[in-house]
């Protein structure tokens, strides 16, 4: 596949204002441009490489959906696809192209193809698509690192919040703990029951949290997809994330429950009663 990227001016002129040409070339436009300019398949428009140049009259042959490409997020440009020779002639580029895409016969043959092309190359160089992707996705690597950092802060905040809530929750059980101790329950039984309760609360909280997280993720996706007019998914709740959240809350719940329960279990029952 040969391709060329260029800046083009697209003049949207009413159909009747354009003098009929013999057989106009066809173009494809993205749905965003179609929506904003009110274009439909079959409409005729003028494309030029610079403002003020006469350009060519073309017919809109297709409306394409933009790919879910993070590189295009927040960019307002429209995408117009032309036949390669048409774009080359518009730009005065002769038969030059920016790049070729080469499809190999499976992953195993890619390395071989790469070295053979580069050995014979004259004025160009072949790269693996994966390497190109790494280079072009540097921006997203940064965003991803940023998200991870925010995630770490959020986890710390959640941990403190959870610890605090658990401490308060167990503290509320002072009288129950005192009563259990007065009827002769062992410290082990008391701590065990409190820890069990804390674990149950943590698990129930996690389940509710998964629900809230799923809903939040849905809202985030809907919102950003609408804002950026893209099918890209911004937030995905994966099994790993769910597992991490549940494990974290369970560990924190049990630890905080154990700490608070131990403290209560070692306090005199009458003191717990406030006497």
């Amino acid at each position: 596949m040969r391709s060329r990227l260029a800046f083009l001016v697209l003049l949207v002129v009413p159909l009747r204002a354009i003098a009929p040409q013999g057989n106009p070339r066809s173009i494809a436009i993205d749905e965003r441009l179609a929506a904003d300019a009110g274009l439909r398949v079959g409409d005729r428009v003028v494309v030029a490489s610079e403002p003020g140049l006469p350009g060519d009259t073309v017919v809109v042959a297709g409306i394409v959906q933009r790919r879910a490409d993070p590189a295009e997020i927040a960019r307002g440009e429209y995408r117009v696809r032309l036949h390669l020779d048409h774009l080359q002639s518009l730009l005065g580029y002769g038969d030059r192209v920016d790049r070729f895409g080469v499809k190999t016969r499976g992953a195993g043959s890619t390395g071989d193809a790469l070295s053979r092309i580069n050995a014979a190359a004259f004025g160009f160089r072949a790269h693996r698509s994966a390497d190109v992707a790494v280079e072009t996705s540097r921006t997203f690597a940064v965003v991803s690192r940023f998200h991870r950092a925010i995630g770490v802060i959020t986890i710390v905040a959640s941990a403190i919040f959870l610890l605090c809530i658990m401490l308060l929750k167990v503290d509320e059980r002072r009288r129950d703990v005192a009563a259990l101790r007065l009827i002769g329950c062992s410290t082990r039984t008391i701590v065990g029951s409190v820890v069990l309760e804390a674990a149950a609360v943590a698990v129930l909280g996690s389940v509710a949290g998964i629900g809230v997280g799923g809903a939040a993720s849905w809202i985030v996706n809907r919102h950003y997809q609408a804002v950026y007019r893209t099918p890209l998914r911004f937030s995905i709740v994966t099994g790993d994330i769910v597992l991490l959240a549940v494990a974290l809350s369970l560990v924190l719940g049990v630890v905080s429950g154990w700490l608070a329960a131990r403290r209560l279990a070692h306090t005199a029952p009458l003191t717990l009663f406030g006497r």
């Binding site: 905040a157 403190i160 610890l163 605090c164 401490l167 308060l168 503290d171």
Partner: peptide, 22 residues
């Protein structure tokens, strides 16, 4: 009287404040 609770609350609010400020 509730030192642990107070310290955790302060820490929790501090982290929230830090996040908000950021």
């Amino acid at each position: 009287r509730h030192r642990a609770r107070t310290a955790l609350a302060i820490l929790g609010v501090a982290v929230s404040a830090a996040m908000l400020l950021d």
